[in-house]
Design a binder for these strands. Structure first.
Length: 249
DNA sequence: CTAGAAGCGGCTACAGTGTC
DNA sequence: GACACTGTAGCCGCTTCTAG
């Protein structure tokens, strides 16, 4: 329901948006009609009219970047609704937690497709692939995944929209690690990777370096599960945040 | 482990509005 | 035009918390 968003208009506050909704202005088309008939609940800046017209066009064209610049970052999650097909989930595995540790695997999940980037094989292709997506989804990524990737790729160009599912769930009062939250919400992991943790990922990587191909296979299975469940969590967070705004009309 | 981003509470500054 | 009031934005410092 991005079409019900007015927060991207310069000078618009949450209260203004709320008052528009309460007055029955529930979409951009409502806004244009009511503006022209002079029946908006309060006077608005004239430039809002043209910005709303542009919003309709850019939504139809799938132009995420237009909205990314106008919407406050805390409300970027609203872009997930209409633009989810342009979103990519990301999760990394490393050799540990400290600054001197290395990235071993980066998993991307996009439109039900999993793609892995492995150190020593194809990791260097990650930046070019990542550049294709305007929306990045992570779990605690701003704290962990992104700083790690920046150490490997100092000039990494990130998508204009970054949705941190951990922060979104926290807003909904749901806190904890990804696995704890998954369990709480009833998401079930595949049998073969159930119970595995990040520490196992480190051990598997070391086994792979010793020549065990099966260890890498298993590590990728684990990473795939992490990153695909991340998408499920994002779907959940989006639904609940919409519900919280009363977007069900 | 432990770095560091985000949330949060509390505070100030200020723009916008209303009143006289 | 001067002033007071209100709500918001911006900022600071503190706390919280997860990642392999």
């Amino acid at each position: 329901m991005l079409e019900a968003t007015f927060l991207h208009l310069p000078g618009a506050t949450r209260e203004i948006e709320q008052r528009l909704w309460e007055a029955g202005v529930l979409s951009w088309h409502d806004f244009l009609e009511r503006y022209q008939s002079g029946t908006l609940p309060f006077p608005v800046r004239p430039e809002w009219f043209s910005l709303i017209q542009q919003s309709i066009t850019h939504l139809a064209k799938g132009n995420v970047r237009f909205f990314a610049h106008l919407l406050p970052p805390s409300e970027h999650w609203r872009l997930y609704g209409p633009f989810r097909s342009q979103a990519v989930c990301l999760d990394i595995e490393t050799t540990g937690l400290t600054a001197k540790d290395r990235v071993t695997v980066v998993g991307l999940y996009h439109n039900d497709r999993y793609e892995a980037f492995v150190d020593g094989i194809n990791l260097e292709q990650l930046p070019d692939t990542l550049r294709c997506f305007p929306i990045l989804i992570t779990f605690n990524g701003s704290d962990f995944d992104i700083p790690f990737l920046r150490r490997v790729f100092p000039h990494l160009l990130l998508p204009p929209v970054h949705l941190d599912v951990q922060a979104l769930l926290k807003r909904l009062g749901i806190r904890g690690s990804q696995k704890v939250i998954e369990e709480r919400l009833g998401f079930v992991r595949k049998e073969e990777v159930r119970g595995m943790t990040g520490v196992d990922a480190v051990v598997l990587w070391e086994a792979y370096l010793r020549g065990e191909q099966r260890a890498l296979h298993r590590l990728l299975e684990y990473n795939r599960e992490d990153v695909s469940k991340l998408k499920d969590l994002m779907d959940y967070a989006y639904r609940e945040l919409c519900r919280q705004l009363g977007w069900g009309w």
